[in-house]
């Protein structure tokens, strides 16, 4: 995965994307117990916010380096043995999540992971069964910053859903 992250960092250096952050199951795994997943979810911020095809420059740049769609996970690009799913930050919550992501070091390579509180908010917004499990796992781990969580829930009108999903 180190090489995969290096390729992602080159996309920033090469001016292909403005920024990226790890989300999804691998984002959650940063804070919680490891969970099974097949792909690496990468949220990206495009250089052009109004680009109708925000993933196109990424796919072109990666194709130029020989990285092609994954043979089995068709919606992913296989980068150095890891299927990577690129997801544009298509709303304010995702943009904020990318911009405020935690900078970390992965075996000497700089990377960014979406904060625990933002991962919870994204899960609430997405609303699938596995998102509900993720929200409960974060709550039960007791690692959420209550003040920060409350602020995000209030600003993105997710408080009611949080209460529904976390009530005993």
């Amino acid at each position: 995965m180190k090489k995969t992250l290096q390729v992602l960092n080159h996309l920033i250096e090469g001016g292909v994307i403005s920024d990226y952050a790890i989300g999804g199951a691998m984002g959650a795994t940063f804070y919680l117990e490891p969970v099974m997943t097949i792909d690496l979810d990468i949220f990206i911020i495009s250089l052009d916010k109004f680009d109708l095809l925000p993933l196109q420059p990424i796919y072109s740049a990666l194709r130029g380096k020989g990285y092609l769609p994954d043979e089995h996970e068709k919606e992913c690009i296989n980068i150095e043995g890891t299927p990577v799913q690129f997801l544009p930050a298509y709303n304010e919550l995702l943009e904020e999540a990318c911009n405020s992501a935690q900078i970390t070091d992965y075996e000497g390579t700089r990377t960014k992971v979406i904060s625990a509180e933002h991962l919870v908010a994204i899960s609430l917004q997405t609303g699938r069964a596995k998102d509900r499990l993720r929200v409960l796992a974060f709550r039960d781990a007791g690692i959420l910053n209550e003040k920060k969580m409350d602020d995000i829930l209030f600003r993105y009108r997710l408080k009611e859903k949080w209460q529904q999903w976390t009530k005993p």
Partner: peptide, 24 residues
């Protein structure tokens, strides 16, 4: 034990994920 899993370094957790992939 769950706390210990949570506090594991990220690269170690990634290795666990890959191990799970191998098993499933």
């Amino acid at each position: 034990s769950r706390k210990a899993w949570r506090e594991m370094p990220y690269p170690e957790k990634v290795r666990c994920v890959v191990e799970m992939q191998k098993r499933v």
